[in-house]
Amino acid sequence: MFPRPIEKSSPAWAATYQALVPMALILWLLPLIAVAVFSIKPDVDFTTGNYWGWPSAFKGFENYGKVFFASDMPRYLLNSVLITVPTVIGAVALSCMTGFALGVYKFRGNLLLFFMFVAGNFVPFQILMVPVRDLTLDMGLYNTKLGLVLFHVAFQTGFCTLFMRNFIRALPFELIEAARVEGVAEWRIFWFVVLPLMKPAIAALSVLIFTFIWNDYFWAVVLTQGAESQPVTAGITSFNAQYRAAYHLMSAGSIVAALPPVAMFFLMQRHFIAGLTLGAVK
């Protein structure tokens, strides 16, 4: 293990380390802590200049109540859910199939197709922006959740295919060959042999894609406008315009907007990290 394990060094250094870690953490998360404190402050604190001090009163319920009951925030949150969840399902389903095809079968152009997905996934959004916006307008899907979902599914399929294909490659190939010898149909091999083994990959991808799509801002701005279909990342900017200089409400709104991926991360931490770090070790 590197660095040298702390328990093998002097007790004084071990104690210092134990104290140092939480201090470093507080410093690291200071911006977030500040927003959390902002969000429970009464508005007088901001007019009297008490920005960074202790809240003069606890107004958490009032502030969050306003966010939930007196703004478009619930609307935006619902939109985000309705965009994110179908995207996750669509992209994961498509990439289970493409990943299976590219990971299991040998055919000409296999690697080429795989590299197409990988390269497409790295492309800057701006090169797609005008044509995709046009396409969405032409299909009558501009400013709809469906328009966003369809694009997200297609784009995320690139990353998901990369992920799934590499995961399937690492599975024991003998399983598939054994099934083939038994004369099992290919789709049955996919459904009954490979898919059950892919559960960890599906879980990891689902949380990752959930976070990516929930936090997407660019496409939300390009393909939607207005509260009826905008997700929360785009909604928070209009929310902030509405409550300009009402820092306590902006903070509460930001925390509400940021919370779902955070919750997802904590609930599915193992899968999330497994997904992000795929390939970081050999």
Binding site: P31, L32, A34, V35, T211, W214, N215, Y217, T233, I236, T237, N240, M250, S254, A257, A258, P261, V262, F265
Partner: peptide, 11 residues
């Protein structure tokens, strides 16, 4: 994990 929109606002 948190959205860049929120990070930008905070900063």
């Amino acid at each position: 994990v948190i959205s860049q929109v929120v990070v930008g606002l905070v900063f």
